[in-house]
Design a protein around this nucleic acid. Structure first.
Lengths: 347, 347
DNA sequence: TACACCAAGTTATACGAATAACTGATCGAA
DNA sequence: TTCGATCAGTTATTCGTATAACTTGGTGTA
C-alpha cells in the first residue's frame, strides 16, 4: 500500500501537544540521557503519546543538528553483481548495523562518472565514511573526492598508499595451499596460475610467491616446468592441466590458483582417466560457492574472507583513531574437502 | 585518508560571504530555476566561490524542508548474499540512480527483528519508498510498518495482496521451456521439478502448470510417469534423471525446473553414456551464471529477469499514480545454448 | 527570615537550505 | 510628472530536533 505523497508523519511538536508538555521535554525524555529528571508521570505520558501517534524521529533534523549521519557509503565496481563477492557487502552491512548504521550502496559497474556523482551524493548526505570496494584484488586509484573523508579501500589497495586498505593475504594463502600438498607427502607440486606475473595482479603474484616460499622452506627446488601462467577460467585450467599431466615427469599434485581453473583440471583428469585424489591431488583457491562444493570429489580450497573483510573495513571507518594508509591483509581459511590425499608411492 | 571528525564542510553562508551576496542569492543561483534573474556577474561570483570552497549542498537540510529524501529503502532477506540474485539489487539501483536516488540497503538474513529495526531507521530517513525483496519466489507476509509507505514486494508476492508485487512469470516460463522442446519435435518430454505441488511454491507450481498447458495445447497427454517432484539440487536431478532415462519408455527430452537439477541430469546422461543433445535434449531454468554457461554442451535455459524486476520495482515506487496491490509478472527470456536438438528418429 | 539549592519543567536558538515576500533602483509610457 | 513594470537582489521564515539557559515553586538549613 502507498500513502499520499508528502504525509510526513507526526513530529515532536505533535507528541508534545498530545502529552501536554513542551517539545523540549519530549526530546529530553526520549533521549533519556538526562531524561531522568522528569517525573515518572510525565515520562509515561510522553511515551504513550509517542505510541499513540506512531511518532518516529526525523533523522534529517537530527543529522542537521549533529553533523554526521548514521550511514556509511558503500561504492563497489560490481561487487553486488558478481556472484563471488556479494558476501563483502553482507559483512560490511552486518558490522555497520551493529552500530546502528545503514549502508548507502552503489554499484558503479566501473563507470567513473557514476562513481563521482554517487560519491558526491553520499557526501552530501554526510555519511560517516565511505567503503570503496573492488570486485577483485588489485592496485587502484581512488577518486579524489575520497581525500578528506574517512574511507577504506576494500578487496584492493590504494596505489598511492594514502587510503587504508583491507585485502586478502594472497601470499599466506598460496603458502598454505602449497603446504597442504607438501604435508600430504607430495614432492612434485604443480601450479596453474590465473595471470602472468607481469600483470602485477596481487592475487596472481601473491599466490605464486607463497607457492615458491613453501617449496623453498620444504627444501625443494621450484621446477619451472611444473608451473603455468595464463588466464583464469576452466578452459585454460583444462589446457594447462593437460600439459602438466601428460608431461614426461608429471606432478602428483596441482595447486590451481582459482577454483574455475581447478574445474578445468578436473575435466582434464577425467579425460585422462585419472582419479582425483588417488592419481592427482588438487587444491583450488576462492571457495567459489556455486562450484567448489559441487565438484566430485569436493574441492579442497581456500576461502577469500569476504565477510570478514567487509566487517573489518567498516570497523576501520568506525574506529576513533586516525587511520594510517596501511594495507591490512586478512587470512584465507582452508576449506577441507576431498581432493587431496597422499601421493601413490606413499604408504 | 580521513578528515578530523566533525568537519562538516562549508555551508551556503560561507559561499555567500565569499561571493559578497546573501545566502538566498546563492540558493537561487544554484537551483537555477529562477536564478536567471541575477546578473551574469553575480552568478559567476557565486559559482567561483562554490568551486573555490568546495561547497556541497547539505542533503539533510534540503530534505528537512522538502519532506522526501532522495533515497529508496531496499530490504532483502538474503538477496545480496545469494550468488543468484545480486542482479536484483543492481537493477533496482540502476533505475533509482536514473532519478538521482540512492539505495539504502539492508540484508536481514531473515531476522525479523533486524528487519523491523532497519525498516524503522529507513522510514526515519524519509525514504521515497521501500523495496521488499525476497531471495526466491514465494508468498510472504510483509511487515506491518510497510502499510502507509510506498512499497513494492520484489521476487515474491504479498500474501494479503495489499502491496504491489513484481515477480517472474513462472507459468509462461514453464510453457516456453516445454514449447521449446515440443517445437524441436519431441513428443515424450519429461519434467524434473524442484518441489512438490503441495509446497505451493510459485516457481514449482507455475513451471509445472506451464509444462502441462504446453503439452495440452500440442495435443499431447501429460504422462505422469515422465514427471518427478522433489527437491532442487544436482543430487536429486541426477537421481530423477536416472529414473526417467532408464525407464522402459524414456523421454527424449527433459525440462529441468532449475539449472542445478539439469546439472544432475547431465551427470546421469554421462554415466549412461548418453550424449546431450543427440540422445537427450535438456532445458534448464534460472540461467545460473556460474553454471549454465560452463556445462558442456552449454545449457539452454530460461533467465529469471532479476535486473528487469529490480528496475520495475523501483519504477513502481517512483511513479505518481497510486498503485494497486496487483502482482506484475515478468517474462523469463530464453537463453539458447546447445543442449536442445531434434529427437533421434527425426530427419 | 533569608538564602542556597533542587526538582521539574519551559523558552529560545541553532543546524543549512528553500522560498515567499519585500526593497530600491531604473526605465518606459501615458 | 507620475504610475507601473521590471530588474537585481535581500530579509525573514520554515522544516524537526537537540540543548544551553532560564523559570518557578518548594525544601532545608543557618
Amino acid at each position: 500500500m502507498a500513502g499520499s505523497r508528502p504525509k510526513s508523519g507526526p513530529t515532536m511538536h505533535d507528541v508534545a501537544a498530545a502529552a501536554g508538555v513542551s517539545q523540549a521535554t519530549v526530546s529530553l525524555v526520549l533521549n533519556s540521557a538526562s531524561g531522568s529528571r522528569f517525573s515518572e508521570d510525565t515520562r509515561k505520558r510522553v511515551r504513550d503519546a509517542v505510541n499513540r501517534l506512531g511518532y518516529r524521529t526525523n533523522a534529517h533534523a537530527k543529522v542537521l543538528r549533529e553533523g554526521v549521519a548514521g550511514m556509511i557509503g558503500f561504492i563497489g565496481d560490481s561487487v553486488a553483481t558478481t556472484p563471488f563477492a556479494g558476501a563483502i557487502i553482507e559483512g560490511a552491512q552486518q558490522r555497520a548495523w551493529e552500530d546502528g548504521l545503514l549502508l548507502l550502496a552503489v554499484n558503479t559497474g566501473g563507470d567513473k562518472e557514476l562513481e563521482a556523482a554517487s560519491l558526491d551524493t553520499m557526501l552530501s548526505y554526510k555519511v560517516a565514511g565511505v567503503v570503496y570496494a573492488a570486485m577483485y584484488h588489485r592496485r587502484l586509484e581512488v577518486p579524489e573526492a575520497l581525500e578528506g573523508v574517512r574511507s577504506v579501500v576494500l578487496n584492493s589497495q590504494d596505489r598511492e598508499g594514502r587510503v587504508p586498505s583491507v585485502a586478502p593475504d594472497e601470499g599466506k594463502g598460496g603458502y598454505a595451499a602449497t603446504s597442504r600438498l607438501l604435508e600430504a607427502g607430495h614432492t612434485r607440486v604443480g601450479m596453474i596460475n590465473i595471470e602472468t606475473l607481469e600483470s602485477g595482479l596481487p592475487a596472481a603474484v601473491g599466490r605464486y610467491e607463497g607457492y615458491c616460499t613453501a617449496l623453498e622452506e620444504a627444501g625443494l627446488d621450484a621446477d619451472p616446468s611444473l608451473v603455468r601462467f595464463g588466464q583464469g577460467g576452466e578452459v585454460h585450467g583444462y589446457k594447462y592441466a593437460m600439459e602438466l599431466l601428460t608431461s614426461s615427469n608429471p606432478p602428483t599434485a596441482i595447486f590451481c590458483a582459482n577454483d574455475r581453473g581447478a574445474w578445468g583440471a578436473y575435466q582434464a583428469a577425467s579425460d585422462l582417466r585419472l582419479s582425483i585424489p588417488r592419481d592427482v591431488s588438487i587444491v583450488g583457491f576462492d571457495n567459489q560457492a556455486t562450484l567448489a562444493p559441487f565438484l566430485r570429489p569436493g574441492l579442497t580450497t581456500f576461502e577469500l574472507p569476504f565477510v570478514a573483510m567487509g566487517r573489518r573495513a567498516v570497523e576501520l571507518i568506525l574506529q576513533d583513531a586516525e587511520p594510517d594508509g596501511r594495507v591490512e591483509l586478512m587470512d584465507c581459511p582452508l576449506i577441507e574437502r576431498n581432493s587431496v590425499t597422499h601421493p601413490k608411492e606413499m604408504p
